[in-house]
Design a protein around this nucleic acid. Structure first.
Lengths: 348, 348
DNA sequence: CTGAAAGCGCTAACAC
DNA sequence: GTGTTAGCGCTTTCAG
């Protein structure tokens, strides 16, 4: 159907080999024939078949990216970081949504492997085994996780979740809140776990007791935040402040509070993580721990590409003593209205 | 590196051909050898190389999707619709972000063609020529646009923008507003154009004069909405209501109004298009014209796949008299707080 | 019911 | 400088 290298070769009166070289601007072919070939190729509207190329080269110049949900602005921002650097290095990206579903995740990974991706960036859903990741390791496919994992020797790029949660909690405590709840997202494995740890450590460091009845684990959507906070806010001893695992969950809390006639931040402080764009323009602009989303993506992509290309060097068969790369990035507290900090300042 | 069909064949003691057939469960191969082959394949963890397959079959089972910005929840919802149906029919999706940039768009399309996508779904950015779309037509690549275009015989799936804008405007007029502004997005070609037409027609039908100084064209981001409305709202005769091309622009308006101390909806009504998830939880929950985002994606994908597969039938060389498909879907008005409808009701 | 051989489009040794 | 040849992994006639 399409025009192939053969037709270009024939019309230009050379061999396919020469065309191939000429179009990649090899010094091995004379300038004059090169320009002729380029002209013919353009004339015919020739577009090299990436499939054939990949098959021959044993390299697709494609990396796979597997995320829970690209429609979540948090992940789409990460994706931007990834695309920025992959495209700079001449790689393409195949995206997969797992919808926080373990089976879908495994399927996606397998599908991508079948398409001969050169490497993979993955934000794995909580799982007991992480089997397919072990499989990746065994098969020597370079990959980078966006989460810390209970699997040995996995490279990852992530935020310092424990520390960030610690600071966020401390911020609330410093504003005078004592009954502080936490709404987490079970699907997010260690990320949630680490934040919970930071939250707990901050409470204890500041002489407050950790009360596990004030912790509720839920899903990832706004509705989940709504439901979980409804649970928390309709009790006798309801929290005076709530930390949400994400801004999206926090927005769900805002919705619930509104419905219950609870004023934020006057009667309830709400804070989240992520700092997605909409956090500035939601019902009550959110105080949030901003994650370096773009950088997470960019660094992960950079690391992955480095791994891919160094593997191609070491192709001799010797397995290089692989070092494990762990990149942990800092977060930044963004103070807006929902935590009540501005209220306190006014009062004084 | 990976395990190939040859190794499976060798170990199972058959030819590659038989393996190929067996794994696709052809009746041409005996049950017993079939099970043996399947066992070996599983044992070796064999995964067919999609590249080889595509090359041989002249069909990649991949469709390209080119959108301005996947981090925009509007487009990510469309993407969900697309993925739902493509995966049902065994197609994969390659996504490209054009960032509303014409050159990037053209490049993406070419890159995808090089990867031998079987078809393309595209939401084209405003352009004078739409050259590469004509190219697609010429080369016979099936594609579906998500916008009406000034190019002949292009299949598309879209919302009834003119009608929807008409209704939305009428809604505002029915609430008693007279000075109604419009903030548009130039990048969106006919979509913006059609909505402007509907807006205008509604004004005139209701006996109001169309005042072009109340129309300002801008970009697609929240900041653009902010800036454009700042312009509109700091004039002597500022509008009493504003229609934004999208909810994201509308959120920018809310931000500007807040900064200016203008109360929404008491002093300014704001409405948008799209109904993204965050529209319910933004500063003032938005009244908006909900687009059937998911359906747009799903229908586009369905149409495209039909085109792809019927083209494969007609492969004999005869060009079937192609009919042009134009699918126009209805929108739905979602009334929340930002238009002030509830205020009016309370007053009565 | 199974195998041999050719070919999809491209690249890379190795000749000339 | 350029061409020949083989091969990447898979499918598919066409024979057996």
């Amino acid at each position: 159907m399409g025009v192939t290298i053969h037709q270009v070769a024939e019309i230009a009166g050379v061999s396919t080999c020469t065309v191939s070289l000429a179009l990649r601007n090899s010094p091995r072919v004379k300038e004059r024939t090169k320009t002729r070939i380029v002209a013919v190729a353009k004339e015919l509207n020739y577009r090299p078949n990436a499939l054939g190329r990949a098959l021959s080269l044993q390299k697709s110049s494609t990396i796979g990216v597997t995320l829970p949900d690209i429609s979540n602005p948090f992940y789409s921002r990460i994706t931007q970081g990834i695309e920025e650097v992959t495209s700079k290095f001449g790689y393409h990206v195949i995206l997969c949504n797992t919808k926080y579903d373990l089976e879908k995740e495994a399927n996606s990974v397998h599908a991508m492997l079948g398409r001969k991706i050169d490497g993979l960036i993955i934000s794995p859903v909580e799982s007991v085994s992480y089997d397919y990741l072990k499989e990746l390791k065994r098969e020597g496919i370079p990959f980078v996780s966006l989460r810390r994992l209970p699997v040995e020797e996995v490279d990852y790029v992530m935020a310092n979740d424990e520390e960030a949660a610690y600071e966020l909690t401390k911020h609330l405590i410093s504003l005078g809140y004592k009954r502080i709840g936490y709404i987490g997202n079970t699907k997010c494995g260690f990320t949630d776990h680490d934040r919970l740890l930071g939250y707990r450590r901050a409470l204890q460091d500041q002489g407050l007791t950790y009360d596990e009845t004030r912790v509720v684990e839920t899903g990832f959507g706004m509705k989940d935040g709504y439901r979980a906070s409804m649970n928390l806010l309709t009790r006798d001893s309801k929290p005076r402040a709530i930390i949400a695992f994400s801004d999206i969950l926090a927005m769900g809390i805002l919705l619930a509070a509104k419905e219950l006639g609870i004023k934020v931040p006057q009667e309830l402080a709400v804070v989240g993580f992520d700092d997605i764009e909409f956090s500035q323009s939601c019902l009550v602009p959110l105080t949030t721990m901003a994650l370096p989303k773009y950088d997470i993506g960019a660094r992960a992509a950079g690391l992955l590409i480095r791994k891919i290309e160094q593997r191609q060097q070491t192709d001799a068969g010797e397995i290089s003593l692989e070092e494990v790369h762990r990149i942990v990035l800092k977060c930044k507290l963004i103070i807006r209205e929902s935590c009540g900090a501005y209220l306190k300042i006014k009062k004084r």
